[in-house]
Structure formats: C-alpha cells, structure tokens
Amino acid sequence: MERYFIYLGVLLTVIILIPLYRVLRGPTLFDRMLGAGAFGTKTMVLVIVIGFIFDRIDMFIDITLAYAVLNFIGTIAVARYLAAMVKRSK
C-alpha cells in the first residue's frame, strides 16, 4: 500500500518537472507565468501524496490548502499587475 503511494509520488515528480521547460524556455512572460502556475497546482497533488506516504494526512492537507490559496493569489497578482501596467500606459 505504501509502495503504491511512493511509486505515485515518483511519477508525479516526473510529471511536475515537465512544465519547468516552459518556465525556463518560454518565449513570452505569460508562458513563464503559466508554467509556474501549472507547476504549483501539480505540486499540490504531490504534497497530498506525501501526506499519504508519511501517514500524516491530517497535517499535510492543511499545508495543501494554504499552498493552493498562495498559488492562486500569486497568479492573480501577476495578471492584475500586468493588466494595470497596460492600463496606466494608455
């Protein structure tokens, strides 16, 4: 049972590393931000799976909720900042 979650965590880590290509290579600023957002949302799942591996799911779920809120606020903040920059320059 635990071995299943360990394999799942390794697979999720490989999947999480793929958007880093877009963060590093992305042709525009928005591509980098999109890759960072995808990285964050997938990391949430990895944190839950780590909670199942360590059998401390009650603690790791709260970490996951805080991480989800921070990831959402970060993406929204960057989007609002760029939109406000355009609006001010017009």
């Binding site: 928005f30 931000m33 999109l34």
Partner: peptide, 8 residues
C-alpha cells in the same frame, strides 16, 4: 487564474 492570465 488561467483566464485572468489570458485576459492580461
């Protein structure tokens, strides 16, 4: 979040 980024 994706929609906000695309709109920006």
């Amino acid at each position: 979040a994706t929609h906000a980024l695309a709109k920006a």
